[in-house]
């Protein structure tokens, strides 16, 4: 394994929320240029894993470690993670009445630019920049003048998350059920936007319940998370098998293997 290419290394990570243990020893290695899909039934811990990576305050890490670019990610505040290139596309994006989407995007962009020692954009320059970015997900420019996510449909909110990803250019993007609540046309648009953002020097973790999204964003690896652990890892064909057979057999296989060991 070429360590230089390792972006994220999760070792035996466990975490709890409100005193309930959700993650029970996750192990995962993500290298640059890779797309990983994290699948699993409801309550398996996949969204928790996404939130722990982003540093959500409600989740307490109880064991293990997470190295991001060789550094201890868990010691970093959420904003430090963001500035270092970690991005979480929210399952339920937050509405912020009173702040225009364009002002918010510019503030976030300039904050990251400043943190990375790069030039900030004034409102006029940013306007040109953002108008290009929103084409990626076919977002109407009128959404820039509206308050952040306020009154957006579920699909519009998800597009807005991908616009933010395009603006912030993360190294590691974690998309938490970005496909949920999207109709098939919107799903194609969003997936197409994400595909344009995949580069050889970044990586994506797709957290999803359904195989559907993976028809459009093709993963290098599919992991099944169940009971707070990754119980199976395979290639993209694993997703199709899960779609046909459900999740139960994976768990059964995992338990049998463990019993045999």
């Amino acid at each position: 394994m070429n360590n230089k290419n390792i972006l994220l290394e999760v070792r035996n990570l466990s975490a709890e929320v409100a005193g309930i243990e959700i993650l029970k020893g996750i192990n995962l290695v993500v290298k640059v240029g890779e797309v990983h899909a994290l699948m699993g039934p409801n309550g398996s811990g996949k969204s928790t894993f996404a939130k722990v990576l982003a540093g959500h305050i409600d989740y307490t890490v109880t064991g293990g470690e997470v190295l991001y670019q060789g550094k201890n990610l868990l010691e970093m505040a959420p904003e430090e993670r963001s500035r270092a290139g970690v991005f979480l596309a929210f399952q339920y994006p937050i509405e912020i009445p009173g702040v225009s989407n364009s002002a918010f995007l510019r503030l976030a962009y300039n904050t990251l630019q400043a943190a990375r020692g790069r030039e900030e954009l004034d409102p006029l320059e940013f306007d040109d920049f953002i108008r290009e970015k929103i084409k990626l997900v076919e977002m109407d420019p009128s959404f820039l003048d509206r308050s952040v996510n306020q009154g957006f449909s579920g699909g519009e909110k998800k597009r807005n998350e991908i616009v933010q990803m395009a603006v912030l250019e993360p190294k590691l993007a974690v998309l938490d059920e970005t496909d949920s609540g999207l109709d098939i046309d919107a799903l194609k648009v969003v997936a197409n936007g994400v595909n344009h953002l995949i580069r050889p020097d970044n990586a994506i973790i797709l957290v999803t319940h359904y195989q559907r999204l993976l028809n459009y964003i093709v993963p290098d690896y599919v992991h099944v998370i169940e009971g707070g652990q990754i119980v199976k890892t395979g290639g993209k064909e694993l997703a199709l098998e899960l779609e046909k057979r459900g999740y139960d057999w994976v768990r059964a296989e995992f338990d049998a293997a463990r019993a045999a060991a």
Partner: peptide
Amino acid sequence: DAEEVFYLRSRGLDD
């Protein structure tokens, strides 16, 4: 709202 604060922090703004 703590969720709103977290959302903004996840976009790089400090607390």
